[in-house]
Write a protein that binds this DNA or RNA. Sequence first.
DNA 1: ACCAGCAACTTGTATATATAAGTTGTATTA
DNA 2: TAATACAACTTATATATACAAGTTGCTGGT
Lengths: 237, 237
Amino acid sequence: MAHREAPQYRKLYEQLRHLIEDGTYNSGDLLPSENELCAVHNLTRPTVRNALDMLVNEGFIVRKQGKGSIVKGKPKGIGILSFSGTTSAVGQENLTTQIIVKPHIRGWDNAFSYEITEKQKSVGCIYLERLRLINQVPILYEITMIPNLNLPRFTSRNLENKSIFDVLRKHYQIDVKGGEQKIHAIKADEMIQEYFGVPETHPMLRLDRKMETNRDGFCFFSQIFCNTEAYSITGRF
Amino acid sequence: MAHREAPQYRKLYEQLRHLIEDGTYNSGDLLPSENELCAVHNLTRPTVRNALDMLVNEGFIVRKQGKGSIVKGKPKGIGILSFSGTTSAVGQENLTTQIIVKPHIRGWDNAFSYEITEKQKSVGCIYLERLRLINQVPILYEITMIPNLNLPRFTSRNLENKSIFDVLRKHYQIDVKGGEQKIHAIKADEMIQEYFGVPETHPMLRLDRKMETNRDGFCFFSQIFCNTEAYSITGRF
DNA sequence: ACCAGCAACTTGTATATATAAGTTGTATTA
DNA sequence: TAATACAACTTATATATACAAGTTGCTGGT
């Protein structure tokens, strides 16, 4: 079962999305018209529209008849994935990631507070722990568990400054379609006190998340600890 | 400018959505195949697929190549709206609401951490505070602020055990389409300590939420304090 | 100078068609 | 009997085409 090449509309979607995310197109800009995109990429309008539809669904653009495709800039965000500082906005340049436990394959002790299927249990789990810092200050500690199902070379990929979501989407055509999360406020335990440098009484956020994808039955899990003193977790719904 | 008739794909979408919502198709059922829908409604496949695409985007169905369109049943929830106990599920019967500050009109001191427009500021704000208990235990304290814009008799409505969402939808045709939230873990301040009966070091959850609606420019705000010791906040995304 | 109207763009909707690829049940074969 | 092969379904992807309808700017007439 060879890796099937990504369809054209998906390639175009990735390209356009990338151009929006890296700032080539800014909020308010118009994308090239559908006919231009057809000509440049040698595709037909339905195919191009398919790619644009994806961008619309994810909130990257809005389309106006007679006008064009207008870049909105920020996607709706899937659950919680962006930070906003209480004082100033946080750019990508201030955000760094440290891999604390390198991705490796192990069994499933548990999936936090979620149930997993026998099938998932049988294939083992790709496990990693990462610490995220903003301006060298630890803000977020994330434990991720992914079923080891047909993800060639995953453990050797560099996840240092990339989102798991992006890696899954770009290299494996896995889109996170939704999910479920449980949120608790907790006191810092020893591990947390060490990583974040906070006292025992410090209130922390803990999120248990289950991510569902377009691949049938494929979901993965993460547990996130967050210090919301200086930065809050924000999300759109 | 007469009302333009709804396009075919939209009519089909409404029809199928209705059939799912009223239980004609249940979770797990297969919808008629694309070709069947073409024949029955006298449309072509791209048109039918357009309608099905909408259902996929809103989470009503999933499609599997070679299989069909499988009904999922329920759409994605809007942000955080349900509780699940760590031990057992919580039914409506165990949930009570106390109005701490009755709805009244006042000025906007602030909208928590959100900006408000001059227009909103000028019309004043409907303000209320409610405490929610599960089995007589205080779990959630909610402060709500709504712009006083064309909402006749709102302050005299009974909000004791109804969701504000429901009241706005049923009596004023206002649907919450989405919104934004910021989440913090905090220590209990004096007010919190009193209402929840917890010590000062107790970690609490604070959510600042901005709700956006189908009414152009109309949004409202709430701040929620939650004790997640026994019950966690859960949400789908 | 103004403005009505048209031309040339844009996206929206819809049809017709073709091929690829996954699923399932049945018939055939070892 | 059990495994294999195939036929008949399903959705996935892509092309080619046509016309409708909204937006914008130019152009010619008043």
